[in-house]
Design a protein around this nucleic acid. Sequence first.
DNA 1: CTGAAAGCGCTAACAC
DNA 2: GTGTTAGCGCTTTCAG
Lengths: 329, 329
Amino acid sequence: MTHAAARPATLEDVARAAGVSRSTASRVIAGTGFASPDARDRVVAAVDQLGYVPNPAARALVRGAGVRLAVAVTGTTSAVLDDPYVDRVVAAAARVCTPQGLGVALHWLPRHAPQALRQLAFDRGVCGIVLVNTTEPVLDAVPRSLRGRIASIGIGSAAVPSFDVDNGGGATAVLHHLHATGRRRIAMVTGPRWLSCAGRSVRAYRQVMREAGLPVRLVRGDFTATRGRAAAREVLDRWPDTDAIFAASDATALGVIAGLRRRGVRVPGDVAVAGFDDIPLAELSTPALTTASHPVGRIATAAAQAVLDRRPTPPATFFPSALVPRDSA
Amino acid sequence: MTHAAARPATLEDVARAAGVSRSTASRVIAGTGFASPDARDRVVAAVDQLGYVPNPAARALVRGAGVRLAVAVTGTTSAVLDDPYVDRVVAAAARVCTPQGLGVALHWLPRHAPQALRQLAFDRGVCGIVLVNTTEPVLDAVPRSLRGRIASIGIGSAAVPSFDVDNGGGATAVLHHLHATGRRRIAMVTGPRWLSCAGRSVRAYRQVMREAGLPVRLVRGDFTATRGRAAAREVLDRWPDTDAIFAASDATALGVIAGLRRRGVRVPGDVAVAGFDDIPLAELSTPALTTASHPVGRIATAAAQAVLDRRPTPPATFFPSALVPRDSA
DNA sequence: CTGAAAGCGCTAACAC
DNA sequence: GTGTTAGCGCTTTCAG
């Protein structure tokens, strides 16, 4: 039973109630060091009875550890933080942190000022960092002191383990599907140039096209729907005989469909459209969007976990992306 | 210039560098108490030069404050945490916390065990709480000790200031639009029964119907698209002459449209459909979804801010919801 | 195996 | 105005 006290119990209270010293109580609770079964039991009972919860601030202070995990998103402006993708990452990280008495902070890392990362590294309140949309310059700016407590969702480096979706595999699956259903002039709307991890799906595209002896038709995108709309027009103007468009994100794909529609092009009748991410609304759009899955929550959970556990981590972990065939392609 | 040190600077270092005592440095940095302009300048310079960042753990410890803001979401199962809406709230809260050296934690509050809230209240690591999807029993379970550092997104109480969208106003705007465009048999798919704040739009619906002398046609929903699909069939079966459906969320509305389509009903030709929330993809669906805006980010920001600032807060703050007319109604 | 004691970095009385 | 001092709650040597 939890006894409701006016003032939350401290370790001192627990120790007194258990008839042991603070040190012993601490050892039992932190699970570090030795303690007799008897002492252990009494401490556990006292903890339970008083509803004791360790004060994470005190703990962090004495251990020299931080109290929050920083999610740092690289981007040109702070607008990159206004993104459902970032929201997912932050929420997933928060779920991982909560049981440990930690919190999550959200930072924008200016793309052209990667030194900002050092600030974060020096903040004694930060126990670890999860990088999002990382670039090579940012990775190069990672100070030694961050070793073992930083991970990246996207590309990684020798010092920074990476966690990401296998966009190469997902893209290949989508493109094979397009090819298998008879499409032969397949254009792709890519992600932003500066985002290296977006390059993997472009490489997959080039390779599939080469193997199939098909022409390469690339249009630069930025993951947004707005850009997708414009990109659709661009594709139509440059290569009027295009019969399929693969977009690097679902939002872009939806924009592409809207753009196509406006020009009187039928989807998937005239042009098939496929996206990437399988966002919740992909299956609700009309036509339902063919896409590839992207387990953002699981990826972010793994990255946050790796940072908190400070456990040896493989340099790169890829999460499979599966084709989700629906109506648009 | 930030001088890169092996060990992050402490207040002690700053004080020494500025030639003052720790207290004076503390006063200047925390902005509390007096300090001569001269001392102030020297401290500021030292902070800058050493790249000093206060240790939030130490600060929280001595002040008896927490180091994280808890976002607590009420629901039957922990699955309520898997919701883009919750993601938005958490991310917005994280942005507010970050500059203060705080983090965000995410908790599930079992709907049938509101006592869980006491646990949170006793956790000395928690500096404040933002309630999401609150119910009356949860509000009743708020302990005194939380006064002044808790806010609710949704319904509030005497002890808990609330921040929410004006769903009554938004619903009214949508319904007037439906009526103005000639719809006369308007059904509504509601939110879950246990969620009181969802009741406001139902009340608005009842009132508009009464004033217009139109029949009330209510189907219970749960904000999901899946339920929307089923609800569409239910509406069609019970009231075949329905010419408009207002859904309490965009996801539901999109589900309704899908369900309608499957039955060969044209939207908006045969039945107009309107949603609520204006999620990013509302404008990308086909037909583009008519809806009412819902500034989740601003609401969450305000709620988090209020909790952190511990500033006197009006008992209820409503954020306007505006009609966003598109193609579906 | 256990307790005493020394701090972690900071703030807030309280003297000067 | 400024410095001195006493902790906040916890972990961790170091003796017993």
